[in-house]
């Protein structure tokens, strides 16, 4: 998006007057768009003591290079203080895609090297949780399961849920864990939580295989509806990334956020229809309930596997919108907070 033209510029000055973010530039990796230079604004330098030899000035730095004779050649980059919102800089993320892939590989290898059971652990975790839930919620509490066998029912929810909880937990403190990298090397820090959410996809695939095995055991025939699962996975990744970006950015400044994250994940699980069907929620509350993006994903899985659920296009729309909101809000917050990471980590 390029904000050019006078009507939009007018809008800008209105925003500026009201203290809202002045410009949000999204540099897309298309050949035709040139990277827009960041426009510096009035700088406010913190008040200094009188002993300081620095002259206190409030100066406006224009985007021209420091050396006027160097106008023929543009600098590769200009280092200036920035304030406020920062552009998402997708182009730079694309440039560092090799690093992203290597981070995903590294963390996958490490996870499997460090646990004695390796891949078996990825299989057993949701399975054991499913068995416990079946006993507690299915038998003892006798929660309904939309006519399907309870184990299969809860395992659909757990496939989604395990992805979220694992991805969030690893991504939430990814910055703090890699503090050394953050403070000593320049790279887009957004890659660190993103690598964790992408890595979770590998575990998710394993869990999916287990789900297919369970379907075979319960003699539920696979149908063409299963082809929709990759779409759900894509939006799940977006949501998880968005929430992870929020938490990882907050964790840098507030170290107790990692504890808050665990609590948040627990509460979120019970707010999602993992162990109970959405049909238990009264009709008028369902749109509100669907503001939780996990609702749409879990119901979508149940629809794809079991064939019947109360999923309707409205709820799906809400889910998609919420996952995009999560992603973009997380990304912009992260980029804004990123400039201070190296100093406070």
């Amino acid at each position: 998006m390029r904000f050019v033209g006078s009507p939009l510029r007018q809008l800008f000055f209105q925003f500026r007057a009201h203290g809202l973010p002045v410009e949000m530039q999204i540099a897309l990796p298309f050949k035709s768009s040139k990277p827009l230079a960041l426009r510096e604004r009035y700088l406010k330098i913190a008040p200094l003591s009188t002993e300081s030899p620095i002259v206190t000035t409030v100066a406006e730095l224009s985007a021209t290079p420091i050396r006027t004779q160097a106008r023929q050649q543009k600098p590769t980059f200009r280092i200036r203080p920035t304030t406020g919102w920062a552009a998402l800089n997708v182009r730079e993320l694309w440039k560092y895609r090799d690093l992203l892939w290597i981070l995903v590989e590294r963390d996958t290898k490490l996870l499997y090297k460090q646990t004695a059971l390796g891949v078996a652990w990825v299989v057993m975790q949701p399975l054991i949780a499913a068995i416990i839930f079946t006993v507690v919620f299915g038998r003892v509490a006798r929660l309904p399961s939309d006519g399907a066998p309870y184990l299969l029912f809860v395992f659909c929810g757990l496939t989604v849920w395990t992805y979220f909880s694992q991805a969030l937990q690893h991504a939430g403190n990814s910055l703090v864990r890699n503090a050394q990298l953050v403070s000593k090397v320049y790279f887009p820090k957004l890659l660190l939580p993103l690598a964790q959410t992408l890595r979770g996809v590998v575990d998710f695939t394993v869990t999916l295989v287990v789900l297919l095995v369970l379907m075979a055991i319960y003699r539920v025939p696979p149908t063409f509806r299963l082809a929709v699962l990759p779409v759900f996975l894509f939006f799940m990744t977006l949501t998880a990334t968005g929430v992870a970006l929020w938490f990882s950015a907050l964790s840098v400044k507030y170290r107790d956020c990692t504890h808050a994250l665990q609590y948040f994940i627990q509460v979120w699980m019970y707010a999602s229809p993992v162990v109970y069907p959405i049909s238990m929620i009264p009709e008028q509350w369902r749109p509100l309930f669907a503001l939780n993006p996990a609702v749409g994903f879990i119901e979508g899985f149940r629809w794809a596997v079991l064939g019947h659920s109360v999923l309707n296009p409205n709820l799906l729309c809400i889910t998609i919108v919420m996952s995009l909101v999560a992603l973009f809000s997380g990304a912009f917050f992260f980029r804004r907070a990123e400039r201070g990471f190296a100093d406070i980590i």
Binding site: I79, P81, R339
Partner: peptide
């Protein structure tokens, strides 16, 4: 890795 508080630098 970190940002200046004021002033700037150009890198070629």
């Amino acid at each position: 890795i970190t940002e200046p508080t004021s002033g700037g630098a150009d890198i070629y």
